[in-house]
Design a protein around this nucleic acid. Sequence first.
DNA 1: CTGAAAGCGCTTACAG
DNA 2: CTGAAAGCGCTTACAG
Lengths: 345, 345
Amino acid sequence: MSRAAVRLVDVAEQAGVSLATASRVLNSSRPYGVRADLRARVLEAAEQLGYEPNHHARALAGSASMTIGLVVHDVRDAYFALVAGAVVSAAEEHGLFVTIVNTYRDPEQETKYLRLLRAQRPRAIIVAGSGFRGEAAEPILAELKQFEASGGVVVALGTQHAGHSIDVGNHDGARRLAHSLCDLGHREFAVVTGSAAMNTVADRVEGFRQGLSERGVELGESAVHYGEPTRETGRQAAERFAAARAAGAQVPTCVFGTFDLIAAGLVGGLTQAGIVVPDQVSVAGFGDVPPAADMTPALTTVRLPLEDIGRRAVELALLTEGDRQLVTVEPEVLLRQSTAAPRER
Amino acid sequence: MSRAAVRLVDVAEQAGVSLATASRVLNSSRPYGVRADLRARVLEAAEQLGYEPNHHARALAGSASMTIGLVVHDVRDAYFALVAGAVVSAAEEHGLFVTIVNTYRDPEQETKYLRLLRAQRPRAIIVAGSGFRGEAAEPILAELKQFEASGGVVVALGTQHAGHSIDVGNHDGARRLAHSLCDLGHREFAVVTGSAAMNTVADRVEGFRQGLSERGVELGESAVHYGEPTRETGRQAAERFAAARAAGAQVPTCVFGTFDLIAAGLVGGLTQAGIVVPDQVSVAGFGDVPPAADMTPALTTVRLPLEDIGRRAVELALLTEGDRQLVTVEPEVLLRQSTAAPRER
DNA sequence: CTGAAAGCGCTTACAG
DNA sequence: CTGAAAGCGCTTACAG
């Protein structure tokens, strides 16, 4: 119960061996390093003293860092919470720790925290944010490159910043969803989505458009409504649809909210306006965030295999050499009660 | 673009000053430490080289660690995601990083990760789990004490393991909820909750019981149903109530699910069994987890001021001396559509 | 197989 | 105000 933490010297002393020997035992490097009796004495001493090696010293002395940096927009967001959970679980299996930073969808914050993260000298940085396009992405990319240049590994989810990347299935998932909806009989669609500057948004919209196109349906640019990835955006869009409908305008039979939250807002807004989902309009989301299955009606959506993604991300993070990898995963379309065949008119 | 990261010597060299001087400038300690021109040169060199100090070296050399350990049951859980988000935000404001570990509601895991966390030498450990009672808690407590003995600070949420603690309001929130429900006219209650071994459960049940008692209503032990904090537990309980009701048994007019998820299951199960909420039975939850407000009917629940809790936790984590603190926060009862005055019989 | 010693990148008394 | 030097707790060639 001394004021300071137990050090390796303390262990070595108690075991009656040199520092080097104690270190070798505790690092379980090669199997035949240390004589059995010495090994036993060291282990016992460590156990007895409750010794826990100082990671800082370890990292400084050259052994690989035990931490992984995880960059998300906000852990409070269900999607990122699931990603974070998967990464933390996978990391724990490898004895690694995960340090989380929130960037709040702000490129400047992202750059700043990436830089601060470098100071921690994590073994790898996993960028789970949706990334940005164009100019905003440049300083971020620069930070990532510098991290790589100093020996760190970068894993990007859903985008190809730098380093390894995992295609989480935004494009492919939206494409498959489009197929399913067309197969249900829909031909007139609208899309309500987040900011065009986000990769996630662009990927989902493009994937959806491609999927429709493969079924012979064109999605015009005017059918895509950009906003924030929030319930409110969905609700407002719903009100506009309802108004247009009341005014006798031609209205889509199916609306795709590219985030479950948007879709939830759409369902709420339409219902409130007296439009029955899915009888009059079908609504689909993306993400399969927990409440999606429990909404009324249960939300048709796309599930990304987040657990799988987390595991793969950590595996890539552990790679010490070799070429950049590009991993793909299989998204899954979940047809539930918020979509149905369109009514004849 | 050398292979290794930029070091302080590199900066000092480029600025033409000694290591010590460079260090002083970059640590912005006392304002009048270094001559202005030297200071400027150091700053410029650092900027130019993209220097970011090595935290490991810093920590080893004696400056306070920049990381906080956060122990949760599972970040995927909405409650913990919100807590984690709040802690990460607050930490970022102080330039600190948060390392998250998941314990999966398992005392052994918790002990293990607490121990591994010690190796990271974080400045503080915030234990956000609901904690355990009795024997299971002992090794956890021992780890925490050892961490404190070696100079770390411990902050416990919702329980008083060791170190500072924040009473997150489980007891008080449930107590206030009981008042509100009694004021609505209810006199017959049932409680559906998680495992009795969890502090959260015990606190909420006890608080609820006390609140009722203060309104002259007694809650018998047989009216409390223990299970898991899941939707399924709620659903099953609902089925039992429905069966009892169909059999003509006396049934409570109001059921309190001590977790929103349980309450959601209760509402779902009751509705499915043809019992209308709140007309026939009122249901209340606890937590105000995001979907709560958007359920149909919207769920009456208790909101804990998680943002506030996160901020206070980080403040306590930063305390370097002084007595243990016990912080209290103000939970809020949110009366929504899932509760109403009981129907006369 | 084992130990003495150098070195990782910083900070901080201690001299000047 | 500034610099040379010791030391933080480890790991790892290098000798033995």
